[in-house]
Write a protein that binds this DNA or RNA. Structure first.
Length: 571
RNA sequence: UGUCCGAUGGUGUAACUGGCAACACGUCUGAUUUUGGUUCAGAAGAGUCCAGGUUCGAGCCCUGGUCGGACAACCA
């Protein structure tokens, strides 16, 4: 009878019908099956407002909000604002803007840990009353010394066995402002010999005479993360509290604090996953701050930064970031994702959406000698071959045009499909031209290319039998708009910017050529382009209008290059 | 002489309660193409960290190693 199980193949139908789940979804589905927490799924995204959100946060946002959507649950936005000296309103605003932009909605569930300060204070008193917390008079150093090391147990504080009454009184006086910062601290009474450092009587409440962005001067004591976080989850009825791996060691403490207050069957569960790492990118908030403050970049929204606001300004779309998040998956092992994956996600999205335009970024003048002097022809051009609804436009064409310097070569290699002496190419949407002559200046630099065109080869007439291998883009000289173009490249030279020579820090790996500002010519259709609009400059890449643009001067940011198998082959 | 976590192609993620490894990115061919883009067709690339064990059968289970990561803030 056992044999019936032998060699039973999986049918491909079976495999298709079951989309693979990540380990968190596996946990959720198990919980659902057991009707845990009445079958509710409730997650939260809990940023600390001490910096701008980055692509790593986007992973977490997509995870938390995505899980809620998938399982018909809810996801709260909760600011973890328990440390007033590090947190600022500017960050709150940017975080809200970024999550909305990514396309997620917390409805009326915008919360702050500071909303719960009263309740948290009550629970702290409960801890004291139950003999689970005490006031320590020692300073940071003394407490640090007593904590031991991961391999050496700590020792008890001399204040560990104060009476409950004294603790209660002292705690109240802490709250009332009778003590200076650091003079007293409330500690959980757990186990100074625990192999888990976080269980060695961790801090619960510390004194900070600082105004809070929401509670003003009401408090001069503030709860620590470990205490506030789990209890806030409990207050909000969160079922799955998802955070990154470094909090794994905190989980026993998360559970311990919960144990002190929990009533009934409902209980939130902390689950950890591996944070996102991207090659050639720095993700640490502290280091990003450093780049901003030391002006290595123009600000938090510098298009070279992996911040959400930077990516937005660079020209990334919310869809591309969400798709990226889906693609990279969720697991517990440390990872470094190739930025090529991110770039693929934008190209994929922008290919479908971006209107095509012609732009010459490194211009050289080309004169069509047999084209009438004052004539302008308006040629019909497709706005987006991937989207019929995008329509068409007219592109001006005249005797003098600009083409890309790299589209002409005097000594072309094999398989060079562009212009060279005596060779022909098609001008996109226009005619086939033939190079007759080249004019150089005294330095040997080409300043003008002279060509003839064949009027019989006009695009779209369908009469042309002649085939040419290459098609190049151009902009009519007298119709061209001069614009600024910011060419971005990766901010760091190293795949892992943290690997440096001895004595140097990650900033020694900054790519000196991460930004090149140039002037180029674009077709007149672009005249009224608005900030954040996306375009594909044909044969070059995707570009996005920068917010620094004015009526007189358009500025484009290069989002990403087009794939270029020719360039790759010739590397 | 600690505790916790992890280990699958170059990268990342899968493989449902064990049934000889799939998908995506990347790479390389070729076709199509008025974007050297897109699209399409195809290829190469791992035998799952190591050693044992259980089993008809192990990437999945067990034991022991190895390697990597996290933890000693009155930060989150």
């Amino acid at each position: 009878m056992e044999n019936s199980k032998i060699n039973k193949p999986k049918s491909s139908e079976e495999l298709k019908s079951k989309p693979s789940l990540n380990f968190i979804e596996l946990i959720i589905e198990e919980d659902l099956k057991n009707n845990k927490n009445e079958g509710r799924i409730h997650t939260r995204f809990p940023p600390e407002p001490n910096g701008y959100l980055h692509i790593g946060h986007a992973k977490s946002i997509c995870l938390n909000f995505g899980l809620a959507q998938k399982y018909n649950g809810l996801c709260n936005l909760r600011f973890d604002d328990t440390n007033p000296v590090k947190e600022e309103v500017e960050y709150i605003d940017s975080i809200i803007e970024d999550i909305k932009w990514l396309g997620f909605d917390w409805e009326d569930r915008l919360f702050y840990a500071s909303d719960y300060f009263d309740q948290l204070y009550e629970w702290a008193i409960k801890l004291i009353k139950n003999g689970k917390a005490y006031i320590d008079d020692q300073d940071v150093e003394a407490i640090g010394e007593q904590r031991g090391t991961p391999t050496k147990p700590g020792i008890n504080s001399p204040y560990r066995n104060r009476s409950i009454e004294e603790n209660l009184d002292l705690f109240k006086r802490m709250k009332n402002g009778d003590f200076a910062d650091g003079e007293k601290i409330l500690r959980a009474k757990i186990d100074m010999a625990s192999p888990n450092m976080h269980l060695r009587d961790p801090a619960v409440y510390r004194i900070k005479h600082a105004d809070h962005h929401r509670t003003g001067s009401k408090w001069c004591i503030y709860p620590m993360y470990d205490f506030a976080h789990g209890e806030s989850d409990y207050i909000e009825k969160i079922t799955h509290s998802i955070c990154t791996l470094e909090f794994e060691v905190h989980r026993p403490l998360y559970d311990w604090f919960l144990d002190q207050i929990i009533e009934g069957n409902y209980r939130p569960r902390q689950i950890e996953f591996a944070r996102l790492n991207l090659s050639y990118t720095i993700m640490s908030k502290r280091k990003l701050l450093e780049l901003v403050e030391e002006k290595h970049v123009s600000g938090w929204d510098d298009p070279r930064l992996p911040t959400i606001s930077g990516l937005r300004r660079r020209g990334y779309t919310p869809e591309s970031i969400r798709n990226f998040s889906d693609r990279i998956g969720i697991a517990k092992r440390n990872n470094i994702i190739d930025v090529a994956m991110l770039e693929h996600s934008v190209r994929e999205d922008l290919n479908k959406k971006a209107l095509r335009r012609m732009a010459v970024l490194d211009p050289v003048k080309l004169v069509i000698t047999n084209f009438p002097e004052d004539k302008t022809e308006y040629l019909e051009a497709v706005n987006n071959p991937e989207d019929e609804n995008a329509g068409k436009r007219k592109v001006p064409f005249s005797k003098e045009i600009y083409i890309e310097r790299s589209d002409f070569m005097e000594d072309p290699p094999r398989k060079f499909f562009r212009l060279s002496h005596g060779k022909e190419v098609r001008l996109r949407y226009a005619y086939i031209i033939k190079c007759e002559n080249v004019i150089k200046n005294n330095d040997g630099e080409i300043i003008e290319i002279q060509c003839t065109y064949d009027p019989e080869t006009k695009s779209g007439t369908g009469t042309t039998q002649r085939k040419v291998k290459g098609t190049i883009h151009y902009v009519s000289a007298k119709h061209a708009i001069k614009v600024e173009v910011r060419l971005y490249d990766r901010l760091f030279i190293n795949e892992n910017p943290d690997i440096t020579e001895d004595g140097k820090d990650f900033k020694s790996n900054i790519n000196p050529d991460s930004l090149k500002v140039i002037e180029g010519f674009v077709e007149p259709e672009l005249k009224n382009a608005k900030p954040l609009e996306h375009f594909q400059f044909e044969r070059q890449g995707y570009f996005c209008v920068d917010k620094d643009s004015t009526d007189n001067r358009l500025i484009f940011n290069r989002t990403v290059l087009l794939r270029d198998s020719w360039a790759k082959k010739n590397k």
